[in-house]
Simulated scan of single mutants.
Amino acid sequence: MVKYLIGASVRGAAHRRHLTPNQDAIKWFSEPTILAISDGHGSQKSFRSERGARFAVEVALNTIKGFIETINFNNFLLTKRVADEQLPQIIVRAWQAAVQSDIDKQPFSKTELEILKGNNNTLAYGATLLSVVVTSDFIIYWQLGDGDILTVWENGTVEKPLPKDERLFANETTSLCGKTAWYDFRFRFQHILKVPPKLLLLSSDGYANSFCDESSFLQVGGDILQLIETEGLYYVRQHLENWLCESSERGSGDDISVGLIVLNEEAK
């Protein structure tokens, strides 16, 4: 099974106008195939969230990589249990350690402490996390907070592999800085019995929020797969950043990050 990864993260149109940084982060490994996206909250109290997002993707990739390198691929039940019950806790604790190390290097100013108003220091770094690992035998998905994961199948069907979290509405989201962060992860272990999806798309919430409705957003998964198959992966890689900038300008105004994993023998 051939696996190709491409991705891009763009500063939102509103962020450019207000001179605020891109608070998303994206990172991937090609071997093993792991992709992670994080969206820093960017609120007044999460004033270091672009760092929190960067720490999130680094921690997720390193944690998942270590897990994949040590598991017994013949025991799917144990693999699923560890991935579901232990990895979220390891990721959260590693993220908290990275945050504390950053605070030790650059302590909060008096003004920043006043903004936090006694809240947990990790609130300043608050961020969401999407991550996925793909092997020849299974795909594992993790999600904490908003954003989207789509699977696109050969027949054009586009699905969301994870259940909806009813707590996510308006600007409310679960987060790495939450008190119950590791319990708030959504998870799925997908055993590849015959044919895997042809495309996995991960995106921060700025992308879906740039479409008029969910059906229009879901359609983009099939559209991108069709472009890959007709124009080639290089074409999509060349244009992806511009497409995301245009989406932000016409839509949400937010930062947008998109990562694509192509499971396609014909990808060029």
Rank of each mutant, 00 (worst) to 15 (best):
F211I: 00
A170M: 07
R167E: 08
L200R: 05
V195S: 08
D184S: 10
R188F: 02
N171W: 12
I192R: 01
P161T: 12
Y207W: 11
Y207S: 00
K179Q: 12
L202E: 03
C177R: 04
W182V: 06
F211K: 00
N171T: 08
R167A: 03
G206H: 10
L202S: 03
L176G: 06
G178K: 01
R167P: 01
L201S: 07
F185Q: 05
P196W: 04
F187W: 09
F187A: 05
S175M: 12
A170Y: 10
C212T: 15
L200A: 05
T173H: 05
R186M: 12
Q190S: 13
R188A: 09
L162M: 09
L200N: 03
T180N: 13
N209Y: 01
K198V: 06
Q190R: 02
A181E: 15
L199W: 07
R167F: 08
F185N: 07
Y207C: 02
E172I: 11
L201M: 15
A170Q: 12
A170R: 13
C212H: 11
S203G: 06
A170I: 06
C177L: 08
I192D: 07
D205N: 02
P161C: 14
F185V: 05
F185C: 10
K198H: 10
L168W: 03
L200Y: 04
S210M: 04
P163Y: 15
K194N: 10
R186P: 00
P161G: 06
F187Y: 14
